[in-house]
């Protein structure tokens, strides 16, 4: 649905060329929630802004539904933007207008008739559960409520694409969860394609189907969230994942070289089976559980266990093979 090919963005600063986007290639499918994660300055914000051309790429192609949007003239571009909703980290509501008028704003821009606007805004207020705040001004709302107004406003024109620019980064964890749940719901209800950028792995975990990891203007890893979580390939993705399950970092082990400490990763159904008890019974070894964690991803759950095997070398190897057959990932922890 959205395909981004060989997109570059350069900034020139005191004759120094700075590459904000460096050969970006992306294919975003219809009805998926696609996440882009990276530290600040990685280029993710520039990337999401090229999709509705708030930021003009220096070169490359961006196709939405088969049309090259970089060839659009001003009028076509305005038409495109009406089909792409966008929400922001700082909500960006009009302070001089009530909640109702904020949501009605994109509709009034198109000079639609009053009755329709009234009806549509009420529908949207229902959708984001803010009926009682209809006539209040943004300054009287909490952060979560403001973002809900912004979501309603972004959806007013029935877009098929919703861009979320760090939409939950200024909210507390509880409100973040609520907003993410709302986004998940409306995605299903309205068959939206959502592209979101964030620096929080929690957000990716919670709602994304696929994720791209960005660093220095490049996409360094791109896969399903489950795959990235169970088998991160780059240091950056590993650090993002470790940040989201902190407890694994806190265990410090001595004499690691001489011990057999493994990280086991269970994906999907197997994470609910009594694997450890089976190992103990079948292979007659001791299993010492050092740490454990289950990540509930959007499509899957991923269990992580850090265990130490004690016992006869042969038995341990047999157990390891049995584990591999069960489709559980096994990784020796070295330091």
């Amino acid at each position: 649905m959205i395909s981004i090919n060989n997109v570059y963005k350069f900034y020139e600063n005191n004759d120094k060329k700075f590459k904000a986007l460096d050969d970006i290639n992306l294919e975003i499918k219809e009805n998926e929630i696609f996440g882009v994660i990276g530290l600040s300055g990685a280029g993710k914000s520039t990337l999401i802004r090229t999709i509705n051309r708030l930021e003009e790429p220096t070169k490359g192609h961006i196709n939405i539904n088969g049309e090259n949007i970089l060839n659009f003239n001003k009028k076509e571009l305005r038409g495109l933007r009406k089909n792409i909703g966008m929400i922001f980290q700082s909500f960006n509501l009009l302070n001089s207008k009530t909640v109702f008028e904020n949501i009605a704003f994109p509709l009034r821009l198109q000079k639609l008739d009053k009755e329709y606007i009234e009806k549509r805004v009420n529908e949207l207020l229902d959708l984001v559960n803010l009926k009682d705040k209809k006539n209040t001004y943004p300054s009287q709302l909490s952060g979560g409520q403001k973002q809900r107004v912004a979501i309603a406003r972004a959806l007013a024109n029935n877009p098929n694409i919703l861009l979320c620019d760090e939409a939950t980064s200024s909210l507390d964890p509880k409100t973040t969860k609520k907003i993410l749940t709302l986004l998940k719901d409306i995605q299903k209800k309205l068959d939206l394609t959502i592209v979101l950028i964030t620096h929080e792995m929690e957000v990716i975990k919670e709602i994304c189907n696929r994720v791209a990891i960005m660093e220095n203007g490049k996409i360094i890893e791109l896969d399903t969230v489950t795959e990235v979580f169970t088998n991160p390939k780059t240091e950056t993705s590993k650090s993002f994942i470790n940040k989201s399950n902190k407890d694994l970092n806190y265990i410090k082990l001595s004499n690691l070289e001489k011990r057999k400490v493994y990280k086991l990763k269970f994906i999907g159904e197997v994470s609910k089976e009594p694997v450890i008890s089976e190992i103990i019974k079948k292979f007659n070894i001791y299993v010492n559980i050092l740490s454990g964690n289950i990540d509930e991803l959007m499509s899957n759950s991923v269990g992580t266990l850090i265990v130490e095997f004690l016992g006869d070398e042969d038995d341990i190897n047999k157990a390891k093979n049995w584990i591999k057959d069960k489709n559980i990932r096994l990784e020796l922890i070295k330091n």
């Binding site: 708030l54 933007r81 922001f88 009009l94 704003f105 861009l163």
Partner: peptide, 17 residues
């Protein structure tokens, strides 16, 4: 706020609007 202006541009507003 520049962000507010950006958000309105993202809705397809004309300069006069």
């Amino acid at each position: 706020d520049k962000g507010v202006i950006e958000s309105v541009i993202s809705m397809g507003a004309k300069p006069i609007d």
